[in-house]
């Protein structure tokens, strides 16, 4: 019985921790972009205030919308984003370690996108239809280089003869930078560049934010959401930032000091900040939006070319 309560507390801890961590990092992201554009920027807890305001507002359901899909999909998108964090080794081992949870995590990342698309399509408004189709094109695009990037460390672990090669724990414990020679180091660096583009694409941030393109299609996929539904979507957005970057931390930046939990967690926060700063704030402020007719060309062409070059270099 005691064991159950412990588990329940652990789950609650992870839910609240991931949501608040995500919102804090979103706040930091907003401040940094503001600073880079020479303006003051909102207070650090601004995302929390947004969420509380949204929870108070009315959550309107459009006329011809299908009620149950429209309401359920934001909640499913949030729950699955939190679920991913249980499979990723953040400090020591992941909570739910398995022998092939890398493929599971790659597939679980499709769920939030899928539920937002279904919710947007069910809201029966032209803008959200177009936004949802663009989100699907975006998913089609970044899934290919994401698969390549995720299977590079698996190949390294396989080449040096470990078992259970698809489990994130083995990749996290065996530091892949040690398993590779000089050419491989260059390959991994190229891979990291590709990863920053993939993270920006996954979270549909600036160069790839075609589905919520504010100027073109007024809020895009989330045009019809308001009130607590929109709050759920913002939360799922925040948790996805944490999830995708902690996946790539586990894969590509596993250095850590073996001491008590708090120091290891702080190092994890530092790595998280490093990745989010480069992949989100830096790329967001620097680049502008790609055209939709070029999006998959860029993904399947340049980004996956970058990833495959990295993979080939690692092969030597």
């Amino acid at each position: 019985m005691f064991n159950l309560i412990l588990k329940f507390i652990l789950i609650m801890l992870i839910i609240i921790g991931s949501i608040s961590l995500g919102l804090i990092f979103e706040g930091i992201d907003r401040i940094l972009t503001a600073k880079m554009q020479k303006r003051v920027g909102p207070p650090i807890l601004q995302p929390f205030y947004d969420i509380r305001k949204l929870m108070i507002k009315e959550s309107i359901i459009p006329k011809y919308a299908i009620k149950w899909i429209f309401e359920l999909s934001p909640i499913i998108s949030l729950t699955v984003s939190i679920l991913i964090l249980f499979y990723i080794p953040i400090v020591g081992k992941s909570i739910l370690g398995g022998s092939n949870d890398l493929i599971l995590v790659v597939y679980l990342f499709i769920f939030p996108g899928l539920s937002i698309v279904l919710g947007a399509l069910s809201s029966n408004s032209t803008y959200s239809n177009i936004g949802a189709q663009r989100l699907v094109i975006n998913m089609l695009g970044y899934e290919f280089p994401l698969a390549i990037a995720c299977f590079v460390p698996v190949w390294l672990v396989y080449k040096s003869g470990f078992s259970n090669i698809f489990s994130l724990n083995t990749i996290y414990t065996h530091n892949i930078w040690g398993l590779v020679n000089q050419i491989g180091i260059i390959g991994l660096l190229i891979e990291i560049i590709a990863i920053f583009l993939i993270i920006a694409g996954e979270l549909s941030k600036s160069p790839f934010d075609l589905d919520t393109a504010d100027s073109e299609i007024a809020g895009g996929a989330l045009a019809e959401y308001s009130g607590r539904n929109l709050a759920m979507l913002n939360l799922s957005e925040a948790v996805k930032i944490i999830a995708i970057s902690s996946l790539f931390i586990a894969l590509f930046f596993p250095w850590n000091i073996q001491s008590n939990l708090i120091i290891m967690f702080l190092i994890y926060i530092l790595k998280l900040f490093f990745i989010i700063f480069i992949s989100l704030t830096l790329i967001k402020t620097v680049t502008s939006r790609f055209k939709i007719s070029k999006l998959t060309g860029i993904y399947w062409g340049y980004v996956s070319l970058l990833a495959t070059i990295g993979f080939l270099l690692v092969l030597f």
Partner: peptide
């Protein structure tokens, strides 16, 4: 969160 909203007003027509 807030559950009520003014049904079948101009609000609910898709923007």
């Amino acid at each position: 969160g807030e559950k009520k909203y003014k049904k079948d007003t101009v609000q609910t027509i898709a923007y």
